[in-house]
Amino acid sequence: MVYKIRDKETGKVYEVTIDEETNEITVYDVKTGKPVKTVNMTIEELKEAGYEVEPV
């Protein structure tokens, strides 16, 4: 599923895909559409880390 996340401190917005089964999150560069990095976190962990998470 695709989400937009926003860093509450910097205001930067990222587009991510989240595999609900493995909790693998792939972060994409919004301008190029290319993957930047992959992390292993849940949506709740993202929120605790200071991100706003919205489904696209």
Rank of each mutant, 00 (worst) to 15 (best):
V2L: 12
M1K: 15
Y51M: 04
K31S: 12
K4F: 14
I43A: 03
K8Q: 06
I25N: 00
D29Y: 03
E15K: 13
V56C: 11
V53N: 02
V36G: 04
D19C: 09
K12C: 15
K47G: 08
P55K: 11
V2H: 15
E54K: 05
Y14T: 01
I5W: 04
N23A: 07
D29F: 03
T42I: 01
E24D: 07
Y14C: 15
I43W: 08
R6I: 13
D19V: 05
D29N: 06
D19H: 08
N40Y: 15
D29L: 03
L46W: 04
R6P: 00
I43L: 13
M41Y: 07
T38H: 08
E9F: 14
T42H: 03
T38V: 11
N40W: 14
G50P: 01
P35F: 14
E9D: 09
K8A: 06
V56Y: 10
E21M: 11
K8L: 11
I18K: 02
E48W: 10
T32H: 03
M1V: 12
G33P: 00
N40R: 14
V39T: 05
L46H: 00
E9P: 01
P55L: 13
Y14D: 00
I18A: 04
T10P: 00
Y28N: 03
P35V: 14
T10W: 01
T26L: 05
E52N: 05
I18S: 02
T22A: 11
V16D: 00
E52C: 05
A49Q: 11
N40K: 14
E20N: 10
E48P: 01
I5V: 10
M1F: 13
K47N: 06
T32K: 02
K4I: 15
T32A: 04
E24M: 15
Y51E: 01
K37A: 15
A49V: 07
K12Y: 10
V56W: 11
E24I: 14
D19Y: 06
K8S: 06
K4C: 14
Y14N: 01
D29R: 01
E54A: 07
G50K: 04
T38C: 13
V27P: 00
V30T: 12
E15G: 10
T42P: 02
I18G: 00
K12E: 12
V53L: 10
E24F: 12
T38M: 09
T22S: 10
